[in-house]
Nucleic acid binder design. Structure first.
Lengths: 339, 339
DNA sequence: CTGAAAGCGCTAACAT
DNA sequence: ATGTTAGCGCTTTCAG
């Protein structure tokens, strides 16, 4: 109703509204919220009551703009449907939340270009830090992150040349260890089956190769696909393996989804696991312990990777000294019934 | 180097920097980015080149503050580890992204209080709209959303009294339909097993009850737990059922994770499915089609719920007329081998 | 412990 | 097609 040529505003209750109602200045209300001990108790209570009454919700965009801190970080994972990352997310979220940060989650669909787009978007939100999955990023993504001058953590695999800190475990060694486990059990004709061969899966494949070479065994029994990983794909891969190599006696599938799918297909074909064929997976997802027979696999520290990544990011955000740039959280071969 | 008492700023390249470099006003740069056709081509190209050179990234906080539109919506799901919601997220994300919105995802861990906290947080980010899971929310959450005066969609179940639009399917009818399927197959001693009995699971339970009553059958064979759903929990529930009710001839588990776990436990105990016991799940997750025997279940339109929820939200954001407030996307009993 | 003034980086509104 | 001015809602800086 006042002047012409007035901006509309959001129509919501603002800090100024509260200040006016209580009869103090805006900054006092701001202090009552953010640093309550710097405001006298009586005033603080009066302000708090007014805030509750009015249903005031601070506008973070304004806060971020004024302070150039958003108290927000970005977490980029390849996929939500890949259960591996749900625990990583949980770990990151718990730690960051407890320190007053909000986590913005994005999924790149295993595409570095989509990852680049997400990084750009989240930088527009003025995130204070970024946690990325893996070490493969586009040049432009690296440039944007460098120029933004904010802390970056890369997780899950150990980066050779980290943008900041790298938290994970050695995927090559894990692939090698599990293959050596099979070799130790007396298996010789050991296949590798992979789908959605992202960089980490490729590293596991390399581990399998190295183990086979060192044992003087053939690394010919190999089928990989770029298609997404799934139970159905595990079944298909099993079918193809037994058709092409009837003498196969152990199969390493690059994740538990594939391994479970292969196991189900074995049941359908009356291939007895592990008697006729040893089956081994990767990640130790919940399903691995539950199938009949249960799946031998590699337990990976997913939750811990999330927690540690968050803690390292916090350390950088607080400008504390960073201990190391590569943090290896290890892995464990989990012997069960299938191999 | 200029005056004393100067604010620091973020140190990043700003719109003003680009404008100064190109020798135009800020608003022209802004237009070149947002409404390119309102700027002459030559100027547009010059500006674009400068933006690329300088690696300029717009500050959305500033934009949102100035325009009171964040081009951002919040999507709240109970859990990431529940695969049911990964497809919902995908559906929402695809639609919103294509319309230039960013989706902020939060998970409440099946807690309405945590949901309330998330709503508060996301309102601070000045989201333009909110998509919630389910129809159960705290009073304060409802108040905040109402006061924020932004469009709200509730999804997965059909709300009796929706905050805005409700998109989903009838969980009671789905539970009833699957039970009637079992009854139609001649089963009489039909149990219901549930875990993490959220509102939707309770509705399915109600459906089971109604079907049993109408058929004159007993609804005594019931075990539920508040603990999270898992394969292991499915196995436990199966074990408890066969111990307490040895004459059980069909078991409806309130989701596929439980059903798969129960199936595995049957294999371990040499209970033949479906010969000795019919097993039926809910949701038609990928695993249902892959187990041996495959799982009979209820296919739920998860992806479609996401897509439609997003579209309804967009309709409200664009202040178009909203057709209906309850949108029923249906379900389908998926007959497979286990029942 | 409280406040006044200035400004964060951008866009809406009104020019030309 | 381009510019000027004001202001979004908050926090920083400096004063008292």
């Amino acid at each position: 109703m006042s002047s012409q040529r007035r901006r509309k505003g959001s129509g919501r209750v603002t800090l100024a509204d509260i200040a006016a109602k209580v009869g103090v200045s805006k900054i006092t209300v701001s202090r009552a919220i953010r640093t309550p001990d710097k405001v006298s108790e009586s005033l603080r209570l009066k302000i708090q009551r007014c805030i509750d009454e009015q249903g005031y919700i601070p506008n973070r965009a304004a806060g971020a703009l004024a302070s150039s801190h958003s108290q927000t970080i970005a977490l980029l994972v390849p996929s939500f449907s890949n259960t591996v990352f749900t625990e990583v997310v949980k770990g990151v979220d718990e730690v960051m939340l407890s320190e007053g940060y909000q986590v913005l989650i994005g999924h790149s669909g295993y595409s570095t270009l989509e990852e680049e787009r997400l990084i750009e978007t989240f930088l527009q939100y003025a995130v204070d830090g970024v946690i990325l999955s893996g070490s493969q990023h586009t040049e432009r993504a690296r440039r944007m992150l460098t120029q933004a001058n904010i802390p970056v953590v890369e997780m899950m695999e150990l980066a050779d040349n980290p943008l900041g800190v790298s938290v994970g475990f050695d995927q090559v060694q894990a692939g090698k260890a599990v293959t050596e486990y099979l070799i130790g059990k007396g298996h010789k004709t050991i296949g590798f089956a992979g789908a959605r061969m992202d960089h980490r899966a490729q590293q596991r494949l390399r581990g399998w190769r190295e183990a086979m070479w060192q044992a003087g065994l053939s690394d010919d029994l190999l089928i990989t696909s770029q298609a997404p990983s799934s139970y159905a794909m595990g079944a298909n891969l099993l079918a193809e393996f037994v058709q092409r190599w009837p003498d196969l006696d152990a199969l390493f599938l690059c994740n538990d989804d594939l391994a479970a799918g292969a196991l189900f297909e074995c049941q359908r074909r009356n291939i007895r696991v592990p008697h006729d064929l040893a089956v081994i997976g990767f990640n130790d997802l919940p399903i691995a312990a539950s199938t009949a027979p249960s799946l031998t696999t590699v337990a990976t520290p997913r939750y811990e990777v999330g927690v540690r990544s968050a803690k390292e990011l916090l350390r950088m955000l607080n400008e504390e000294e960073v201990s190391e740039s590569r943090i290896d959280l290890g892995f464990e071969v989990k012997a069960r019934e299938s191999a």
